[in-house]
Design a protein around this nucleic acid. Structure first.
Lengths: 226, 226
DNA sequence: CGAACAGTAGACTGATCAGTCTACTTTCAT
DNA sequence: ATGAAAGTAGACTGATCAGTCTACTGTTCG
């Protein structure tokens, strides 16, 4: 592929994506982005207007990656739907192996944003819904008896893989996730309806008041009313 | 329980924990913590010396919560080891239901910290190892054939549950995670060794060069060399 | 040619933040 | 009672950050 010379917008987007993920969004200054992108200060503001808008653009490109996987990469595979679902974890492994993988921009952005209100949660949530929807289509196509539950299980495993890969800096998380997904798919049509009774409520621990005692300096009980 | 009057340290710790999780660590100012805690500026610095040390203390209390679960809550249950493992997800559900649950401090802290170097990753990683170790003990006790894989699967599901709960603001993530964990435990002694071959390498998509095309303003290909 | 356009370089502003410092008040054990 | 310890109130400092502004450079195309 004859890679065209990167436009100023592309350079900014790539630098921002990389730095936001590697060092955090709040911790990344405009000047760092400019230096990494090799672009003048004014260019950033003519193209994006603000740091917030730049972040929105970065979130958009991250979503595009996922859509590409679901809409182009996976459909091109000549295999069963179940294998297509499992192939998603191979794509994840590719992603984790990149030297500039530092977690998912969506998750990281939500993690460091205001959880009440804040547009970040809504934007990231909307993209997440679109991704889960594509996953749901695959699950339904695979003939799952309870597609909604299976979809949510797989979505949760994907998010777990991303976090594990970020925290441990090890792409092997994708393989573990793949194996867990295999277990879910294998149990997909098991006869026995899963028992949902809580062991907790049936035995001892009271709900709604758990404790955290610190063993080091200064005792603390979390969750007890004053 | 006759709750003792909260000490200044406790008040600071609780306020910091809450605000760090709800609004992010970088975004939370010292003044906000002081206001939430109802404590004077100077007291924070006599007790903790810096914002960084306060964060370390918060991470410590979060770890204490997990240790309490594994070392006191779960062992007190009169049930099989597998049910004890599943009960962990009931504890998670309790946690997620709290009105001041805004994700896991460990994960959030790593998500917004520098991924190269940075003490945060090491501290959080060390606590994570201790938690996983306790999980491993349970898994071994349950008689898993390959305890290491099962432990990592469950750890990954736990992390997925935390992120899903944070992003969706819905404690139901714990139940989904519980069901996924049940699948893993059910498949624990399955005869067939899990096939690990990558669908990707066997079919079409080349590893190490995936693309993300944006469909909105400005096209962008991520991962292509210049 | 020359005007419009896109980008560079870097000084500047106002706001905010972590951390320090001074002066005052409360609590409580001897 | 009193003196020390612990806490409050809030001004202050130096650094940093997002965003603006002015002046300059190169390129393109009519």
């Amino acid at each position: 592929m004859k890679a065209a010379r990167k436009s100023t917008e592309e350079k900014l987007l790539l630098a921002a994506r990389r730095l936001f993920c590697r060092a955090g969004i709040h911790a990344t200054g405009i000047s760092q982005i400019l230096e990494e992108a090799g672009v003048a200060r004014r260019s950033l503001y003519t193209h994006y207007g603000s740091k917030e808008n730049l972040l929105k653009a970065v979130l958009h490109t991250e979503a595009s990656m996922w859509f590409h996987w679901f809409d182009l990469d996976l459909p091109s595979l000549k295999c069963s739907t179940k294998d297509r679902i499992l192939a998603l974890f191979d794509l994840l492994e590719n992603w984790f192996e990149k030297e500039d993988f530092f977690g998912c921009v969506f998750i990281n952005a939500v993690a460091e944003s205001e959880k009440d209100s804040a547009w970040v949660k809504d934007v990231a949530g909307a993209y997440r819904d679109q991704i889960i929807e594509r996953l749901r289509v695959l699950v339904i196509e695979s003939g799952a008896r309870d597609p909604e539950i299976v979809t949510q299980k797989l979505g949760l495993i994907i998010e777990g893989a991303i976090i594990t890969a970020m925290v441990t800096q090890n792409s092997q998380a994708a393989r573990i996730a793949r194996l867990a997904a295999q277990d879910v798919l294998r149990c997909m049509e098991c006869s026995a309806r899963e028992s949902e009774h809580s062991v907790l409520s049936a035995t001892g621990i009271s709900r709604g008041s758990f404790h955290a005692s610190s063993n080091g300096g200064g005792n603390l009980i979390i969750g007890s009313e004053a």
